[in-house]
Design a protein around this nucleic acid. Sequence first.
DNA 1: CAATCGTCCTGAATAATGTCAGCCAGGAGG
DNA 2: CCTCCTGGCTGACATTATTCAGGACGATTG
Lengths: 317, 317
Amino acid sequence: MALRPGDQIVHKAAWLYYTHGLRQDEIARRLEISRASVAMYLRKARETGIVTIAASTELFASDVLARKLEDRFGLDGVWIADGSAFPDPEAEIPSLAASVFLSMVGSGQRVGVAWGRTVYAIADAMTFADLKDVTVVQLCGNLGAPYSYRPDQCTMEIARRLNAKGLNFYAPLILSTEALATALRAEPVIREQLAGVGECDMALFSVGFADEDAHVVKCGAVTAAELRALRRQGAVGVIAGQMIDADGAPLDCEYNRRCISADLTDFRAIPKRLMVVQEEAKLEPLRAALAGRFATHLVLSRTIAQALIDSPAGQAG
Amino acid sequence: MALRPGDQIVHKAAWLYYTHGLRQDEIARRLEISRASVAMYLRKARETGIVTIAASTELFASDVLARKLEDRFGLDGVWIADGSAFPDPEAEIPSLAASVFLSMVGSGQRVGVAWGRTVYAIADAMTFADLKDVTVVQLCGNLGAPYSYRPDQCTMEIARRLNAKGLNFYAPLILSTEALATALRAEPVIREQLAGVGECDMALFSVGFADEDAHVVKCGAVTAAELRALRRQGAVGVIAGQMIDADGAPLDCEYNRRCISADLTDFRAIPKRLMVVQEEAKLEPLRAALAGRFATHLVLSRTIAQALIDSPAGQAG
DNA sequence: CAATCGTCCTGAATAATGTCAGCCAGGAGG
DNA sequence: CCTCCTGGCTGACATTATTCAGGACGATTG
């Protein structure tokens, strides 16, 4: 808590520049250092979250299509990335999602984080912030080692950016037998962590494919054949590692019972649940997730948003 | 909610510049406008809170003296302005307080605001922010017309800066008889507003002098003679227009009963209560306010903080 | 104790940004 | 139909910020 002496001057420069609007040369004079150092300190201040710069996401929320989606699916907020703020379309959804996320978290909160390529990209696009007393908890177990978007990495990276405490989950996502999964869930450390899900103020997650491209397949937790079987049983999407059917109900299957992850009923009790969908092809899982009312807030691309509106009303909303 | 077409381009420019880090000339090229316009839009975006720039207040909180005050008076946060971030010592406390305040409010919250020179100065120093669903409520009745720091002005100004809804109090602060005050308190509009105090998530206030310099005297609500009498009865400070004694208890006096303002017990039920003390001479009222546990968070100058530590332990902490 | 390394700093050149007088289009009023 | 006015935009220029090669200083090591 006590500032390192080297950081003090960074804070001071940042304060004078951003709060009082002094010019860099004035600051240099007052602090008796060179102008170049001031510029350097200011960059450091921005990079470490000593100063926070946030642009409004209003642009993406103020849109008829967004309003329609809110009404149709009973969502509290929808943001649509349409590539009109172009640079690098790949980066747009993650950085929009990161901004929306940051505008939703506040000091003192507890946020649950799932995992996946999308969540990792969001973590990566997130600016550093200087929040107080924030806890980031991992919503599901871990994948085997040599996989790049590991759940614990998502959690830790977001925690780092928010200047928050990260709570990792010390269990694999998928176990080989139901019995082992049950036993592990009963372990105090794990039970506590699972119970903690209900205390989150918000959640950040995406929805995954339930097909051969699913992360759980790619990382070897499930074979392609097993997944095809699950699909025949009705799996259409994956939320926090668990299979859901087209109505958004957790699939009653052996796979889900082998899975160590947030209970989806507890999950739905979290007041704010931000879902981010990046891939154009995820219409089916997305519809399932919405039918299951997993999200209260949604970030997606214009094309998939349009597809959602065009698709038949079905069981949702 | 639907952006005015003229604002859309401002949002877009702000997004590209601050979120994606493009240069102004790139943005100009993409948006097919001149670079000068981009610079102008960006200024507008900063001025209207489309982009928010906040510097950490850590510098002022990380200090042994602040820690000591927290321990001694059981406060959740203390910030000390010591003039080391110099420009214009007059402006330092208000802008620090404004930054602290902004870091404490979040979207969806309800904040109560008292009044006074200090609160007005804070409102004035506050940057514009782009919060959602915030309500700013006035904590006490209004003063007579031709006075410059009117409670309703404080409320409305802060509401304006936060992009929030302001709820004014349609009653005078002081009435001429107890009977009238009682009758007025029973009016539905007023009763509702008074009841609303308990629902606030945070409060912003200062503590006033209980002497001839008090605002209530200057603005003519109370005569100097009346105030001397109150002082003899034990009044040492003023919180939201009401007299408190050295122990921080509301003074049981006719004046307080004529006063339309937040019930101080309800007030203390607000979870976060930020008190700001600007004047060096306010040691006595400050001690009273702390003894009464009105504040959970405190912003003050180094000299008065030091005086507080040096003063005998008394009944506080 | 000198050599080596790393860190933090600076001056000067380069790049980016802020400003302002003036221009243009469109609306109101004569 | 012209004139004036307003608001929004621009080009050119002045100001301000960033960068980077190199220098100073202190710590570490052989």
